[in-house]
Design a protein around this nucleic acid. Sequence first.
DNA 1: GCTTGACCTGGAGCGCACTCCAGGCCCCAT
DNA 2: ATGGGGCCTGGAGTGCGCTCCAGGTCAAGC
Lengths: 136, 136
Amino acid sequence: MLFPMRDYYTPGEVAERFDLTLDTLRYYEREGLLRRVDRSPSGHRRYRADDVELLGLVRCLRDTDMPIARLREFAELVQAGDHTIHDRLDVLQRHQDRLDQRIAELRAHQTAIQHKIDYYVGVLADNAPRTVEETS
Amino acid sequence: MLFPMRDYYTPGEVAERFDLTLDTLRYYEREGLLRRVDRSPSGHRRYRADDVELLGLVRCLRDTDMPIARLREFAELVQAGDHTIHDRLDVLQRHQDRLDQRIAELRAHQTAIQHKIDYYVGVLADNAPRTVEETS
DNA sequence: GCTTGACCTGGAGCGCACTCCAGGCCCCAT
DNA sequence: ATGGGGCCTGGAGTGCGCTCCAGGTCAAGC
């Protein structure tokens, strides 16, 4: 099994699972995106299953361009306890709405770029036959 | 008319049209995203219709996250003349492909986030009725 | 006992895309 | 003639999100 169910995970395991560097992992912790992670007797980090789960969500949100500052706010809600679930939902739902907008925007721009492509293709089509004639 | 057909446009007009600052406009020129723009006798920039058109495309590509460096390469192709149209098409088509990928990625993450939202909604649904009983 | 490898810390550095600033010029309206 | 607006320049500064580094600790294997 690539990522077995266990009590604790090492930094290396977690970094590999989410394709993050150790530096980024520590950076996220410093920035308050994760709670202060447990340590082994020798001081090495030990990520619990719920750290890993939160990190999965963090990764998802970062990959969809949620800024670190908002992720920190979300993480603070998570730490504050179950009574913040409504607020968390709010954060996530707003993010989804922004994502809808962003996707629509990308699509619109993509259409505009396609028009430019079509225009260029037209230019090539107008020129290519002439080139064929010239070379024949 | 908001943006009349004219020989030249002022920096202010162009900035407003594309919702860019004058600083950004100058920055783009410095970075080679536009050719060296014409000047009035007093040294003020005068954007021609084709500057404006290219800027429109630049805006589109930037808004879809094409990095400045690649935009510069594209702008160099534009300046190099009509024989680069094939290369320009290549740049644009690759960008469209990346955009397809990016949109698919955003959608996938959005689905994952939706699962989290649904989970939270479930938690609220499990708790709310109990709260109602308690308060009645 | 020594090396290797995974990890630790605090802090500096980086790349990108702007963004801001001081000091100056020209032109037009009052 | 004076004041304001719009623009000019070169260069410094900003914010974000990492990323890198030096110097150190610890545990396991040869």
